[in-house]
């Protein structure tokens, strides 16, 4: 049975089209990432999948059950962590966990093994009110509550938004261990670098999917040669590269500037001399593999030519 099967879903809020004819399938045991910025439609899709919102058109099924007809059954077997912290602020850590276990007709003890690693990190604060936890601890408690009934499919809506780089790395280590227990995970993120940690991803922008594939295949389909160049003055470098002939898109990327071009020999032989003439120092130029973020911007430009 396919964990998540979405067929031609559209959803509008008034005149705003949140989702436009979206179709995708999530396979058993994978981590599937919905990658896109705020406002792309990620939360709307999650809310439809966890039966909290009705699509205008199309249908979706979770483990073969229809999200409209079989909503009661679906709610028993999915775990959902919304983007906004939605536990009870005025219950303690322990009370929240017990509450969610009870709602799902189980006990904390019965599935404790599943959450042990996560919960032990917040257990020292089990008597603290959930509203008074730090961001990282709230996130761990929310994940524990979403897992306590041992769901078959776990939906995580932007679990790492606003979370620092260290906690994000730890969170992904936790996800890998949940996956190893056989739980299918569908999550969303606006951090492009997290795409590489998913088995497959869909890149979503303004309600439409731009592509669905493994991160490796998406990178492999990048249609241009991509170069990274560094000099001492990144800001000026951007406009100088734009002015150089036969360059395509030019974007800053950390301490480098990435740009596309198709004639590798010409770039490697002529660009350094040109940059020297423009008074750039410490010039380093090489061809590179694109990242998912490079691919995302390329697809955005293609769908929305300036």
């Amino acid at each position: 049975m396919i964990p998540v099967n979405i067929k031609n879903i559209s959803k509008a809020y008034g005149s705003t089209k949140a989702l436009k004819n979206v179709s995708l399938q999530v396979e058993q045991g994978e981590i599937f990432g919905l990658i896109g910025p705020d406002g792309a439609g990620k939360t709307t899709l999650f809310r439809i999948l966890v039966t909290l919102l009705l699509p205008d058109e199309g249908s979706a099924a979770v483990l073969g059950m229809d999200t409209v007809k079989d909503f009661r059954e679906i709610r028993k077997i999915v775990g959902y962590m919304p983007g906004k912290f939605s536990l009870y602020h005025d219950l303690s850590v322990e009370e929240n966990l017990t509450f969610f276990a009870t709602i799902f007709n189980t006990t904390v003890e019965e599935n404790y093994d599943l959450i042990r690693e996560i919960y032990e990190q917040i257990a020292p604060f089990k008597n603290r009110l959930a509203g008074q936890l730090s961001g990282g601890m709230k996130q761990k408690l929310a994940l524990s509550c979403a897992l306590i009934h041992k769901p078959k499919v776990l939906f995580l809506d932007e679990p790492t938004t606003g979370v620092d780089a260290v906690s994000r790395k730890e969170f992904w280590e936790i996800l890998q261990r949940i996956k190893a227990q056989g739980i299918t995970i569908m999550l969303s993120t606006s951090y492009m670098d997290e795409a590489a940690l998913c088995d497959r991803v869909a890149l979503i922008q303004e309600g439409s999917l731009m592509t669905i594939d493994t991160p490796g295949n998406i990178v492999g389909r990048f249609p241009h040669k991509l170069f990274a160049v560094r000099t001492a003055d990144t800001f000026r470098l951007i406009s100088d590269i734009r002015n150089f002939e036969n360059t395509g898109s030019v974007f800053p990327f950390g301490d480098a500037v990435h740009f596309t071009a198709d004639d590798k020999n010409m770039i490697l032989s002529q660009l350094p001399g040109y940059l020297k003439k423009q008074n750039h120092h410490n010039i380093a130029l090489k061809e590179i593999e694109p990242t998912i973020e490079d691919c995302f911007m390329d697809l955005m430009n293609k769908n929305n030519p300036a």
Binding site: G36, P37, D38, A40, E158, T161, G162, S190, M192, Q205, F251, P252, E293, F296, M297, M300, N301
Partner: peptide
């Protein structure tokens, strides 16, 4: 935070 990669740049 959460801004698309083009708008971020």
């Amino acid at each position: 935070g959460g801004v698309d990669p083009l708008a971020r740049r």
